[in-house]
Design a protein around this nucleic acid. Structure first.
Length: 567
RNA sequence: GCGCCCGUAGCUCAGCUGGAUAGAGCACUUGCCUUCUAAGCAAGAUGUCGCAUGUUCGAAUCAUGCCGGGCGCACCA
């Protein structure tokens, strides 16, 4: 909070005068209103050192804070020795001018100092449509990128395409089999291949093209070359994935192909570097990376007995390249099945000569898709999966995004499709959007009454209801929440914050039914109306900022009132 | 066996750089629509914060051990 800094300085001076000490001061906002606006436990910390009663210390500190700035009403100690500050109510509303001035930028900061950060997320195999787990990763990664941008970082969203290796071969073979089936020929889908319906359709599509005689660029001689299936299939899948992601509001800056990396011989180069640094050795015909030197459980194969590089070798090269491209910080979002990867990847980064803190790996826990409380088993190869697209057939992007953002990445997510649909009417996201829309319509009402909303001279003392102070407080805490969330790489505080703020507003608004003092638009009392609108404008700005960071729309009207959630 | 995540209200989860009476959403009960959208509001009930020990003036929060659940431990990607 902006006022917090001022209190800190005040306390520092007081400490110096009273005890000649210089301690880091922690302030927090008490849960109980009776405990004031800000409180500190500094007396407890000093008590240990000075061997004195914290209450006595607290009193001494308070004595040395005088004279108090005019915006502080009083300071006293309470409980076992907490020092509590109580502000004059107008202090908050005064500071709200900052919110108005900063508008869209309110809450942003320069803490990132323009540091270049690459976020890699989703990175699913390009062998099929994206499932709901990818959806979670996509929404979280996208929101974290927004958050980091807002906090002053320079972010880059990247999708790593595993277009090399066994899975792709199996995928191509599966597609080829489907294609041949469509032509009435015998063919077998590999045992570990991809059974999904989408490949059947694609195979048929390709076969139709052949019969029509329209397509030939993929054909060599009499039939399609096996490589073509890889190429065509890959393109189709990537286009599909891009489209699905776009529907979720997620657009990547770059789709980075593993095959490009291999073409450029980057694994070789990275391995050479590791060797040079002494972290590579040969055993039983394979090359190992000495990841145990950096805390991994065991050393990892980077070049197999058959001479091929392992997937991990490409990954090492990929991370090397991230830093070579000038990113100072790499954030990887991985699925829960990849958490065994954390130690070795961090080890690789360190072995390549980078600092361990330059790579942050976030594990996103699974999404348990439930249908009537029964777990839906998903397997891409078997073709039984609920895709991102399916999800958006059921619920809106706004709801989906909010749903995924409500939970910490480390928490598994239970998602009952039936329940999600049913719960839609009470979904918090509509509640938040409603708060925003409601403010909009209040402004429309005010405009009708010819109320000016330039906010030139606002009589702040007219904002004298306790809820108004609470609202202002909540608004002023927004930048701290954003900074904290960015620091923790956590998006869920945004979701909770928005809900809290909406809740405070809705409660405040509703009081007007019982109590005219709460009525915003009052043409008989224009100064009061303007003051309240000033507060509401600030609320709206902050709601917009919070929603924008989450990639959720801030509608001016809530439509379909009569049949709110007919599906 | 080793490693990672989780265990907080009936359900799903916040809170966890230790702080003063542990929160939200959903579900439940009871009220409230001549007044800026009732997609709403108010009131009510519910907790051995998995268990134990320790550190501390103070522990849901930190440490250690245990119990329970999930996931991972490939020369696959």
């Amino acid at each position: 909070m902006i006022l917090e800094q001022k209190i800190k300085v005040l306390l520092e001076k007081g400490l110096k005068k009273a005890f000649n000490r210089n301690l880091p001061i922690l302030l927090n906002i008490p849960k109980q209103l009776e405990h004031g606006d800000l409180s500190t436990n500094i007396a407890f910390i000093l008590a240990g050192e000075l061997k004195k009663n914290p209450r006595v210390i607290a009193q001494e500190i308070i004595d040395h804070l005088k004279p108090l700035p005019e915006w502080i009403e009083r300071v006293d100690w309470a409980g076992a020795g907490f020092i509590n500050f109580v502000f004059k109510p107008t202090a908050y509303f005064e500071v709200l001018k900052e919110v108005l001035k900063e508008g869209k930028k309110f809450g942003s900061s320069k803490t990132g100092k323009g540091k270049k950060v690459i976020l890699e997320f989703v990175s699913a195999n390009p062998t099929g449509p994206l499932n709901v787990v990818s959806a979670r990763a996509a929404v979280l990664g996208d929101t974290l990128a927004n958050l980091l941008d807002f906090a002053g970082f320079k972010t880059h969203r990247e999708y790593y395409v595993n277009d090399v290796g066994n899975q792709i071969e199996l995928f191509a073979q599966s597609l080829r089999a489907r294609y041949l089936h469509a032509l009435g020929q015998e063919a077998v889908i590999p045992e570990e291949g991809y059974q999904g319906d989408y490949l059947k359709k694609l195979g048929e599509e390709l076969a139709r093209g052949r019969h029509a005689g329209a397509v030939s660029q993929y054909e060599t001689g009499s039939g399609r070359h096996p490589e073509d299936f890889k190429k065509i299939g890959l393109k189709k899948m990537l286009d599909w994935q891009k489209k699905s992601l776009k529907h979720f509001g997620v657009v990547f800056d770059k789709w980075y192909r593993q095959s490009d990396l291999i073409k450029k011989k980057m694994p070789q180069k990275a391995m050479a570097k590791l060797k040079e640094r002494g972290f590579l050795y040969k055993k039983e015909g394979a090359h190992f990376f000495k990841s145990t030197a950096f805390g991994d459980d065991k050393d990892r194969v980077v070049q197999k007995q058959d001479g091929e590089f392992s997937y991990f070798a490409s990954d090492i090269a990929y991370h090397e390249d991230k830093f070579a491209r000038g990113f100072q910080w790499a954030v990887d979002l991985l699925g829960p099945d990849h958490h065994g990867y954390v130690a070795r990847t961090k080890a690789a980064v360190e072995a390549l000569g980078f600092k361990p803190e330059q790579l942050t790996i976030l594990i996103i826990q699974q999404v348990n898709l439930l249908q009537n409380e029964v777990l839906v088993k998903m397997s891409k190869r078997a073709g039984s999966l609920i895709t991102m697209d399916d999800l958006l057939d059921e619920i809106s992007v706004d709801v989906a995004r909010y749903f995924f953002l409500q939970r910490a990445a480390s928490t598994p997510l239970d998602f009952d499709l039936v329940l999600a649909k049913k719960e839609t009417p009470e979904n918090p996201v509509y509640y938040i959007q409603y708060a925003h829309a409601r403010i909009e319509s209040i402004f429309a009402k005010a405009k009708e009454g010819g109320i000016k909303t330039g906010f030139k001279r606002i009589a702040l003392s007219l904002l004298n209801l306790p809820e108004e102070k609470e609202l202002a407080k909540k608004l002023l805490v927004f930048p701290d929440m954003v900074a904290e969330a960015a620091k923790d790489l956590a998006a869920h505080p945004l979701a909770f914050y928005a809900l809290d703020l909406a809740k405070l507003f809705q409660a405040y608004y509703s009081q007007a039914k019982q109590d005219v003092r709460y009525k915003v638009v009052d043409l008989e009392n224009r100064p009061k109306t303007e003051a309240k609108l000033y507060l509401l404008k600030n609320i709206q700005i902050v709601l917009q900022n919070a929603l924008r960071l989450m990639g959720i729309s801030a509608p001016k009207r809530m439509e379909s009132k009569d049949a709110p959630f007919a599906i």
